[in-house]
Simulated assay, not measured.
Amino acid sequence: MTDYKTLIIEKKDGVDWVTMNRPDALNAMNRQLVDDLQDYFGKLYTDHSVRVVVLRGAGRAFCAGLDLKERSNTPDAANGASPQAGLVSQRRISEIVMRMRRCPQPIISLVHGPACGGGFALALASDIRIAGKSARMNAAFIRIGLSACDIGVSYFLPRLVGVSVASELMMTGRFINAARAERVGLVSEVVEDDALEEAVKPYLEEMLTTSPLGLRLTKECLNMSVDAGSLEAAVAMEDRNQILCAQTNDFREGIGAFLGKRKPAFTNS
């Protein structure tokens, strides 16, 4: 899949600007959007031409969650679906966030308007979140008779905000607005909605001045260190990263640029 029906991909200087494009449905995740997101993030693992991904939504929302009007998206007993079919459908959706974490590129989400349910999960699975003032996020699943533990939310949310705040949000389904999200560390900053694109540019500029290998290995090591069983396990991964990076031409270029007080010109070699 190279031409997506529900995603707009703009490639600029090593950055993929990925826009979920179902504005009339608040970018709710129908079957096509699920397939497009799964395919896109799956292909990133071996695509080293992409250094950073910016994820956003068209129109008035980031993503309003699963499209409940498309019942084929939610196989249940009322539709005559078996548990086996339900698990297959469920994994199609949850696979998206696993691929987001597996891909080596940092993902920055620009969140405005509703980011509910599955949309909340997409934001949580990103590496960095910047919120517009209109952002409203919640674990909407529990409000429709399901568990709030869905699409990785029970994994990501307590690691980002702590168990107490995560329990509050997940057990009530209540919304968290942009200002509180910033206070509890869920988002890095809050800006006016129309300033989101400008707000992300300093992050991109700084990431793109790092070495490609160093940036990829930093995301990988952070992922593993979050779940590391000990300090020794985390340090072992860090040591591996540093020795790998130190063997590259980019490391020599980085040292030369630092000593020469100039911007480095990394070549990913």
Score class of each variant (00 low, 15 high):
Glu198Asp: 14
Phe141Asn: 13
Met237His: 14
Glu197Lys: 05
Glu182Arg: 05
Lys219Trp: 05
Thr46Val: 12
Gly214Tyr: 04
Ala115Trp: 01
Met137Pro: 03
Glu95Ser: 10
Gly162Gln: 08
Gln90Asn: 09
Ile151Tyr: 11
Asp67Ile: 07
Glu206Met: 10
Asn241Val: 12
Ser147His: 14
Ala166Cys: 07
Arg129Asp: 00
Val163Phe: 06
Leu26Phe: 11
Glu182Asp: 09
Ala199Met: 03
Ala234Leu: 04
Ser167Gly: 15
Ser211Cys: 06
Val111Leu: 02
Ser164Ile: 08
Ser82Phe: 05
Thr218Gln: 11
Lys69Arg: 12
Met237Lys: 15
Met98Trp: 07
Glu253Ala: 05
Arg174Phe: 11
Glu205Asn: 12
Val165Cys: 05
Ala115Glu: 01
Ser147Thr: 15
Arg216Glu: 14
Glu205Tyr: 11
Thr74Met: 15
Glu10Gly: 04
Ala77Met: 09
Leu122Gly: 01
Leu66Ile: 15
Val111Trp: 00
Leu160Asn: 09
Ala131Trp: 00
Asn223Pro: 01
Lys69Gln: 12
Ala246Lys: 07
Pro158Thr: 08
Leu208Ala: 02
Glu70Asp: 14
Val97Asn: 04
Gly145Met: 06
Thr74Val: 15
Arg102Phe: 11
Glu238Pro: 02
Met170Ala: 03
Ala123Trp: 00
Ile176Val: 15
Gly256Ser: 15
Gly185Ile: 04
Ser188Phe: 00
Ser269Trp: 08
Gln105Asn: 03
Gly59Cys: 09
Asn177Gly: 12
Gly80Met: 08
Arg99Gly: 02
Met237Asn: 15
Lys263Leu: 15
Glu168Asp: 14
Leu217Ile: 09
Lys69Thr: 14
Ser82Cys: 04
Ala125Asp: 01
Thr267His: 12
Ser49Ile: 05
Gly119Met: 02
Val184Gln: 03
Leu160Val: 13
Ala28Trp: 03
Asn268Arg: 12
Leu66Val: 15
Phe41His: 01
Ser147Pro: 08
Phe120Pro: 01
Leu44Thr: 02
Met207Gln: 02
Leu7Asp: 02
Val153Gly: 04
Met98Asn: 09
Phe175Leu: 09
Asp36Gln: 04
Lys201Asp: 02
Met224Trp: 09
Asp47Pro: 05
Leu217Phe: 07
Ile108Thr: 00
Gly113Leu: 05
Ser126Cys: 10
Ala25His: 10
Glu95Tyr: 05
Ile142Asp: 10
Arg262Ser: 10
Pro104Leu: 06
Val190Glu: 00
Leu68Ile: 13
Thr267Leu: 13
Ala233His: 12
Ala195Glu: 00
Pro104Tyr: 05
Ser72Val: 12
Asp67Ala: 12
Leu215Gln: 06
Glu197Pro: 03
Glu253Cys: 04
Thr210Lys: 15
Asp76Met: 14
Met137Ala: 11
Gln90Tyr: 14
Asp76Cys: 14
Lys43Tyr: 08
Ser134Asn: 10
Val184Lys: 02
His112Ile: 03
Gly229Ser: 10
Ile130Ser: 00
Leu231Ile: 09
Lys5Ser: 14
Asp16Phe: 04
Ile128Lys: 02
Asp39Tyr: 10
Asn79Pro: 01
Leu222Ser: 07
Ile176Gln: 03
Asp13Arg: 07
Leu204Asn: 07
Met29Gly: 01
Ile9Thr: 04
Arg136Asn: 10
Asn21Cys: 10
Met170Val: 05
Thr6Arg: 10
Leu196Phe: 00
Ile142Tyr: 10
Asp24His: 10
Pro212Phe: 03
Leu204Thr: 09
Asp67His: 12
Ala181Cys: 06
Arg99Met: 08
